[in-house]
Simulated assay, not measured.
Amino acid sequence: MIVVDAHHHLWTADYPWLAAPALAPIRRDYTMADLRPHLAAAGVKRTVLVEAGRCHAAETSRFLALAAVTPEIAGVVGWAALADPDLRAMLTRHRAGPGGDCLVGVRDQLQAGPDDLLDRPAIRAGLAGVAAAGLVNELVVRAAQLPAVARAAAGLPEARFVLDHLGKPSISAGVDRWRRLIEPVAACPNVVAKLSGLVTEAGPGWTRAVLSPYVKAALEMFGPDRLMFGSDWPVCEVVATYEEVVAVLSEILGGRPAAVFGGTAARVYRLENC
């Protein structure tokens, strides 16, 4: 089995969002040289590099060029503004540039918008455009936005959606509230979810017991063929190491299910292109 980390980032210390005081522990440059020892320690062979909140096309171009010369990076989820009328042309330009074949998905920073953002015609048109380009629609949203995710997925059955961080549940609010919100999403067969970011949502003092109900509920609702492991490194380093994230998921799941730890990502992102 080839283990795939379906969600990690790289960035430089000058990213504006890193200025938040709570993020001081990760306010530095993170490169592939920093990541490689963690991959080796955890037995991870391939990765998916996800946009890191720069919200600029130049970041995607840089990540694609890096993927072209980095064996570990099997695919890139780049940033694009879904409401941009030039979206399709931008995707065409990215694909024509260095590493363009490694573009596997598009992610906008939807979590910063209102709860009904995915219901808006311009956003729906962007989601449809990404799908028409043969790419994954990657969704980073808040739990309150999950009803709109379900409506968008049902309204665009031809699209492939990947839900980051299980929809960012509010751990303090309890698993039942989150489950009510995500069940309609899980009912859409074109949505895959990532077991990622949970240690960060739980915060300092997270434990396996705290995370386990969310992981097990996701496994019940989505099944292993619609779940994928993601480290969310280096965001996770605010509260946990890369190795701790891998270990706690493996413990909760009773091992490393082949689908969750590689097979789902390879299929959904079509990683054979890289």
Rank of each mutant, 00 (worst) to 15 (best):
R27F: 13
R28L: 09
R28A: 13
R28P: 06
D29S: 06
Y30G: 11
Y30A: 12
A33W: 05
A33M: 08
D34S: 11
D34Q: 09
L35K: 06
R36K: 13
A42R: 11
A42W: 11
A42P: 02
G43F: 05
K45T: 13
R46S: 10
V48D: 00
L49K: 01
H56W: 07
H56N: 14
A57P: 13
A57Y: 15
S61N: 03
R62K: 13
F63M: 15
A65Y: 05
A67W: 02
V69Y: 01
P71Y: 06
I73M: 02
A74D: 11
A74H: 08
A74V: 08
A74I: 04
W79Q: 04
A80W: 03
A81M: 06
L82D: 05
L82I: 08
L82E: 05
A83R: 13
D84F: 10
D86Y: 10
D86F: 09
D86R: 14
D86K: 11
L87E: 10
A89Q: 14
M90F: 09
L91W: 01
L91F: 02
G100F: 08
D101M: 05
C102R: 15
C102S: 14
L103A: 04
V104K: 12
V104T: 11
G105E: 00
V106W: 00
V106I: 15
V106R: 01
R107G: 00
R107T: 01
D108V: 04
L110M: 07
L110K: 01
L110G: 04
Q111G: 09
A112S: 14
D116T: 14
L118I: 06
L118S: 03
R120H: 14
P121R: 03
P121N: 12
A122C: 07
I123F: 07
L127Y: 05
A128Y: 00
G129W: 03
V130W: 02
A131V: 11
A131C: 07
A132M: 01
A133Q: 12
A133R: 08
A133M: 10
E138Q: 11
L139R: 02
V140G: 07
V141A: 07
V141D: 01
V141H: 02
A144V: 15
Q145R: 14
Q145T: 10
L146N: 07
L146M: 12
P147W: 13
